[in-house]
Amino acid sequence: MLRTIIRRLLQGLVTMWLVVTVVFVVMRLSGDPVEMLYAGDPRPEAEREKENLRQVLGLTDPLPVQYVSFLAQVVRLDFGQSFVTRRPVMQMIVQTLPYTLRLTVSAFVVAYLIALPLGIMVAVRRNSWLDYGSLVAAMGGVSIPPFWVGLMFILLFALKLDWLPASGVESASAYVLPVIVLAIPRLSFMTRYVRGVMLEVLSTDYLRTARAKGLPEFRVVTGHAVRNTLIPIVTLMGLQLGYLVGGSVIIEQVFGIPGLGHLLVQSIFNRDFPVVQAAVLILSLSIVLANLLTDLTYPYLDPRIAHE
């Protein structure tokens, strides 16, 4: 058990290190951020400023040296200064985090609260109208572009009906539309997935035994089937959170939420590379961490894994 935990922790660390490396490689392959920042600057003193900035940013060092100092930065969570605001990057990121967390965590909860019972219900009532209806809706939900749904919701619920705010973060009601929009694709995917897992569990021998010994169907489902459905669902949680984090970048843009995704997009337009790099890294590392946590939880859910 302890060895399993240690092994998974080590694997998680290796993945994190690789993620950091991927981000470093991607950012350095791009060429010189300083050149991009000063692109089209006609002033004669621009050349000297560029040279200074390269020195300050350490871009004149050989690549392996840059890589090591980048790793050191990441470990200390110190990403230097923003090109644009001159404020510490980490401070800017920490400021945006609460908005993104509120958005993604709420969407995650909404998606699972609907998908779990719905998926289980339609699996039990297989081939019913409810089953077909939710399969069709789920197919639509994974195919619809979320930012378009966002725009249509703003058009309908904010501009036409005036029920909810179109953007901002001033009140809890401002989060209603973005949370729903962000949850739709995940909710659709998870409903189908839960249905599939549940159908598999329902056809297993141990459930036939449970029925054969005279247990009422309700108890068979709630007592035996649901618990065994949970394991593959928990396994997917980290991945789903990853999709939500990616989706939040777009949704924050649609609804004007000043979160991490919004900061990321603004920084791309401003060519503010230290911020872009840090934002991509923080978003990715949070997913690795979430996956690691899931890996560490499921021996508790499934004793069979712990005994391996």
Binding site: V22, V23, G242, G246, V249, I250, V280, L283, S284, V288
Partner: peptide
């Protein structure tokens, strides 16, 4: 798989 696809594509 650990890096959110859209975030990496944006990067």
């Amino acid at each position: 798989q650990a890096i959110p696809g859209l975030v990496l594509a944006i990067g």
